[in-house]
């Protein structure tokens, strides 16, 4: 069971054990970390936006077109922005570190 490290919107740090095979968005909502995930994983709302730690960003692979398009329309993005719904967690993600993005 991989563990991921999260900085929440209020700036506190927490670590959660997650199941491989679920999306990062599902893991965050399951642990009540104030991630709305309104569209439920369709890459159409941007409410599961996270900033990935730079040393982890490349390891997650590239963004798909729909995700990149949606991120392009958000205000609080940076070069390591991702949508949690587009990342499927695996054992190799043990240690993944991220910050939950500000509400748009």
């Amino acid at each position: 069971m991989p563990t991921i490290h999260i900085t929440t919107r209020n700036g506190s740090d927490t670590s959660i054990a997650v199941n491989a095979g679920v999306s990062l968005m599902e893991a965050l909502t399951e642990h009540d970390l104030d991630v709305e995930a309104v569209c439920g994983g369709a890459a159409s709302c941007g409410t599961c936006h996270v900033h990935i730690a730079p040393d982890w960003f490349e390891r997650l692979g590239p963004r798909e077109e729909l995700e990149a398009m949606l991120l392009d329309g958000l205000l609080n993005t940076d070069e390591t922005s991702r949508l949690g719904c587009q990342i499927t967690l695996a054992d190799a993600h043990d240690g993944l570190t991220l910050t939950i993005a500000e509400v748009e």
């Binding site: 369709a42 941007g46 398009m69 949606l70 392009d72 329309g73 958000l74 205000l75 748009e104």
Partner: peptide, 18 residues
């Protein structure tokens, strides 16, 4: 629905609203 949403969504992004 997904095709149509993609067409209209660009006009409603937070950046465009702002």
């Amino acid at each position: 629905h997904a095709e149509l949403r993609k067409i209209a969504q660009l006009a409603f992004t937070p950046k465009r609203v702002m």
